[in-house]
Design a protein around this nucleic acid. Structure first.
Length: 509
RNA sequence: GGCCCGUUCGUCUAGGGGUUAGGACGCAAGAUUUUCAUUCUUGUAGCAGGGGUUCGAAUCCCCUACGGGCUACCA
C-alpha cells in the first residue's frame, strides 16, 4: 500500500457555488498530491438529481482554474479512470450494491419515505430518535424479515426499494485518522443502516464514494470534518467489499468557522459582514441573488491561496507568505490543526495588501486600465503608470487605486469641509493667487523645479509652509490626501494646476 | 437528546514535561512623512476550570464546562 502512487480527489457536489472551505479542501488535496508526487483528481458527486444546480459544475472548475489548482484527471480533462461524473457512472454502482446483498452485508428495504417519516414523528413525540438499524430493522418492511419469495415478488412487481447497509452489531470500529489520530465508533451506539442505493436507481454518497475511490485507486481521502461521523461506515464498506488492503487512509480537516458568533462559515456571514465566502461571483440561477467573489472583489489568487493555506495549517515557523510551489514542498497533514478556525476578514485583506505591494507598478497599471475605461476616463499609458507608481503604496486592492487617484484624472468637484474649516483662512485666497503666479512662471514643469520655485518664494515672503501647502493641496486634490504635492503638480500639468487653484478660490471663497 | 471531534492573546497560530509562553492580524502609542497613507519602533493581550501523574505541567491522564460537527432515499 505504501508503494502505491499517491492519488487524491476533490469531490464536490454541484449543488451551488463552491464555498471557500471547499476551496481549502481542494487546496490541501492538491498540496498533498504535489508534495508526494501524486495525482490530484476532480470528481463530481452528482448522485442527487434533485439538488442539481445548473452552472455549479462550471463554477467549480473555473474556481479551481482561477486558484491554479488544476486536476490531472476530471470531467472535461479526461484520464484513465473516468468517467469522473458520478451521474455518468450510474450503471457501475448497482452491481456493487448487489454484491453486498449476496454477501449479506446489505438488504432490500421497501418502506416508503412516508412510512419512515411517520416512525420518525412518533419517536419524536416521545422524545426519542428513530433510527433504521440494529434494534428496529427486524420490525420493518425489508428483506431481513420477508421471505425470499416475498422479496422476489415485490421486486418483480416493480415495487420501489432501497438497499441498506446491514450494520454489524456491537462492533468497535477504530480508524487512524491522519489528522486526529485514533478514532473509535461503536456500531450499536452510533451507527444506523444507511441507505446505499436509492429507489431512483442512484447510489447515495456513501456507496458511490467508496466504490469510486476504490476504482480510481485513491490512496488518501482528505475531506472536511463533517464527514468524520461517516468514516466508520466507509471503513466497514471497504471491509464488506474485501478491499481493505488497498483502501485509502482518511484525514478529516477542521472546519472554517464564522468570524463572529456560532457555527461554520456560511453564505450569510459574507453578506452580513461584507466579505466574500465564495471564490468567484455567483448568480443564483433561480433567485437571481448575487454572491460576491474573491476574484471580483479584487483579491489576487495567490493571496487567496495563501490565506486559505494558513487557515488550519502552519509550517511550524514564523513564515507567513508562501507561493503555491513553496506550499507544495512544505505541506504535511500532521501540521494541520485539529480545531476549527475562525475566519478573519481583516487578515484576509492584509494578505492581499502584501501581494498587491509586491507587484510592479507596470502590472498594476495594466489592471487599473479597465477601471479607468469603465469610469470613462481617458489617459495616456505614461500618466497611468506614473499615477499608479505614486499611489500604489496606499492601496490594498486594484479597486482602491481609483479612490486614491481619481483627482489625477478629474478635477475636484467638492472640497473636504473639515479641511476647509481647519486650513482655509481669510488671507488664503490671496496667498494662493500669488502661488498661482509663481507656478505660471515656472519654466520647466518638474516636481523638483516647482518645489524650488515655490520654496524660494515662500522664504522670500516668510510664509509658513503649512499654512500655504495644506490649502494648496485642498485646491488640487479636494482633500488632505495624496502623495507629495509637487509630484501631484507635475502629473497634473502646469495649466491644470493653476486652473484648479483658481477654481477652488472661486468655489470656496 | 445520542454519537464523535475539539479548546494557547479578540482572531490565525508556534510551542508536545523545565521557555521571560514566540510570531502574525487587529488595536494603541511614538518616530518619520510640512497633508493623508505607507514605513519603522514599542506596547497591548493568552495556556477554559477542577482534579490527578511528576521534583517540575500549556505540554501526559481523568472529570466538568464550553465550542463544533453528524444524526435524510443530501452531499
Amino acid at each position: 500500500m505504501s508503494e502505491r502512487k499517491v492519488r487524491v480527489r476533490f469531490a464536490p457536489s454541484p449543488t451551488g457555488p463552491l464555498h471557500m472551505g471547499g476551496v481549502r479542501t481542494a487546496l490541501f488535496n492538491y498540496l498533498f498530491a504535489k508534495k508526494h508526487g501524486g495525482d490530484f483528481i476532480l470528481r463530481i458527486e452528482d448522485t442527487d438529481q434533485n439538488r442539481y444546480v445548473p452552472g455549479a459544475e462550471e463554477y467549480i472548475i473555473e474556481s479551481l482554474t482561477w486558484c491554479g489548482l488544476n486536476p490531472v484527471e476530471g470531467p472535461g480533462i479526461g484520464g484513465n479512470f473516468g468517467p469522473y461524473r458520478q451521474s455518468e457512472r450510474k450503471e457501475i454502482y448497482k452491481k456493487y450494491a448487489d454484491q453486498l446483498i449476496e454477501s449479506g452485508w446489505a438488504y432490500y428495504a421497501f418502506d416508503t419515505p412516508e412510512e419512515i417519516e411517520t416512525l420518525r414523528k412518533e419517536a419524536e413525540a416521545i422524545k426519542e430518535t428513530f433510527s433504521y438499524g440494529i434494534g428496529t430493522r427486524e420490525q420493518l418492511n425489508n428483506s431481513l424479515k420477508l421471505s425470499a419469495k416475498e422479496v422476489e415478488d415485490k421486486i418483480a412487481g416493480g415495487q420501489a426499494y432501497v438497499i441498506r447497509f446491514k450494520m454489524p452489531e456491537d462492533t468497535d470500529v477504530t480508524e487512524e485518522d491522519l489528522i486526529r489520530g485514533s478514532v473509535t465508533f461503536n456500531t450499536t451506539k452510533s451507527l444506523d443502516d444507511k441507505v446505499l442505493f436509492k429507489s431512483d436507481g442512484m447510489p447515495t454518497y456513501h456507496l458511490a464514494n467508496v466504490v469510486d475511490d476504490h476504482l480510481m485507486e485513491i490512496t488518501h481521502v482528505i475531506r472536511g470534518e463533517e464527514w468524520l461521523p461517516s468514516m466508520p461506515l466507509h471503513v466497514l464498506l471497504y471491509k464488506a467489499f474485501g478491499w481493505e488492503d488497498t483502501r485509502p487512509r482518511f484525514a478529516h480537516l477542521p472546519l472554517i468557522l464564522k468570524p463572529v458568533g456560532k457555527g461554520k462559515l456560511s453564505k450569510r456571514d459574507g453578506d452580513k459582514m461584507g466579505f466574500p465566502v465564495f471564490p468567484l461571483l455567483w448568480t443564483d440561477p433561480e433567485t437571481g441573488d448575487i454572491s460576491r467573489g474573491y476574484r471580483e472583489d479584487g483579491y489576487f489568487p495567490e493571496a487567496f491561496i495563501n490565506l486559505l493555506a494558513l487557515l488550519g495549517w502552519s509550517p511550524g515557523n514564523d513564515q507567513e507568505f508562501f507561493s503555491i510551489e513553496e506550499l507544495s514542498g512544505l505541506f504535511s497533514l500532521d501540521r494541520v490543526v485539529k480545531s476549527g478556525s475562525r475566519f478573519d476578514p481583516e487578515k484576509a485583506k492584509w494578505f492581499n495588501k502584501h501581494y498587491f505591494q509586491q507587484k510592479e507598478a507596470q502590472e498594476l497599471a495594466q489592471l487599473f486600465k479597465p477601471v479607468l475605461e469603465k469610469k470613462g476616463v481617458a489617459a495616456s499609458d505614461e500618466k497611468i503608470l506614473a499615477v499608479v507608481s505614486e499611489v500604489k503604496e496606499r492601496c490594498e486592492f486594484v479597486t482602491d487605486i481609483w479612490e486614491q487617484s481619481s483627482y489625477f484624472f478629474l478635477a475636484p468637484e467638492s472640497y473636504d469641509e473639515k479641511t476647509i474649516s481647519k486650513r482655509w483662512k481669510e488671507d488664503t485666497p490671496e496667498k494662493l493667487l500669488a502661488i498661482a503666479d509663481v507656478f505660471a512662471s515656472v519654466s520647466e514643469w518638474k516636481a523638483d523645479v516647482i518645489k524650488e520655485a515655490f520654496s524660494a518664494f515662500m522664504n522670500e515672503k516668510e510664509w509658513g509652509f503649512g499654512v500655504v501647502m495644506n490649502p494648496l493641496r485642498l485646491c488640487l486634490v479636494g482633500g488632505n490626501m495624496g502623495p507629495d504635492l509637487f509630484v501631484i503638480c507635475e502629473l497634473l500639468g502646469q495649466e491644470e494646476s493653476i486652473d484648479r487653484i483658481k477654481t477652488a478660490i472661486e468655489k470656496i471663497g
